[in-house]
Amino acid sequence: MRKLQAQGVHHITLTGADRQTSIDFWEGVLGMPFVFDQPNLDDPDEGHLYFDPGDGRLITIFTNENRKPVHSRTPMDPGCVHHIAFNVSKATWMQAVERLDARGIRHSGPKDRGFMDSIYFKDPLGLLIELACYKFEPPLGCSHADVMIEAHRQRVAAGDDHIMEVHLADAIELLVRRRQQTLSGDRDPKDPY
C-alpha cells in the first residue's frame, strides 16, 4: 500500500451565490484578482469564477444567479469547513479592524494565537474567514511548517500548553544552527560584555 503524496493545495472551490456578490467580496474586499471565468463544466447553469489569493494558487467559486446571499453561519457539522485562513502582512493585519469597521463588517477583534495574530469575520454567505499574520519569518531555506514543528517540540519539552514566542525563537535558532555552517569551533551562547 502506498500514499498519494500531496504537495500543496491546488485550489479550494466554494459554493457561492450570484456572480457579482463573489466578485465584490473576493476581489473587492479581500483584494484577490479575478483571473479566470468559465461555466461550471459539471453544471452549465452555474458559473465558475477563479481568484488568486496571493500565492498563485486558486480560490474558485461556483455561482448561480438564482442563489442569493444568506448571512447566517455556514454549517459546522462534521465534514463541513469551519473557516478558511488567509495570510496577510503585518501591515495589512494592523489595518484590519479599521478597514472592516469602515465597511460595517462585524469581526472578532484581534486574537493572539501565540505563533500568529488573527482576526475573524464572515463572508456574505456566512463562511468564517480568518486573516492571519505569522509572528515570525522562517530562516532562509526553511518553511513556516519547519519552524512550527520545531516550536511544537520546544513547547512539549517545556511542558507548555501552547506555542509562544520563546518557542518560535528557540526553534529558529536551532534551525539556523542545523542549516548554516560556521568557522567557530563553539557555537554556544556567549557574553562578550
Rank of each mutant, 00 (worst) to 15 (best):
R2S: 14
A6H: 07
Q7C: 08
G8R: 06
H10V: 12
H11A: 11
H11W: 10
T13Q: 08
L14A: 05
D18R: 13
R19I: 01
R19V: 02
Q20L: 11
T21Y: 03
E27S: 15
F36Y: 15
P39A: 11
N40C: 15
D52I: 08
P53F: 08
G54Y: 05
G56P: 04
L58E: 12
I61Q: 02
K68W: 02
H71I: 04
P75L: 10
P78S: 11
I84R: 00
N87F: 07
A91N: 11
M94L: 13
Q95T: 10
E98S: 14
R99F: 04
D101G: 03
I105Y: 02
P110I: 05
D112I: 10
F115S: 07
M116V: 12
D117K: 11
D117F: 09
K122Y: 12
L125W: 02
L125E: 03
G126T: 06
G126K: 08
L128G: 00
E130K: 05
L131R: 02
A132C: 12
A132F: 05
K135P: 07
P139D: 07
L140M: 06
S143T: 15
Q154P: 02
D161K: 15
H162I: 07
I163F: 03
E165T: 12
L168P: 02
A171M: 07
Q180R: 14
Q181C: 02
K190I: 15
D191Y: 08
P192L: 14
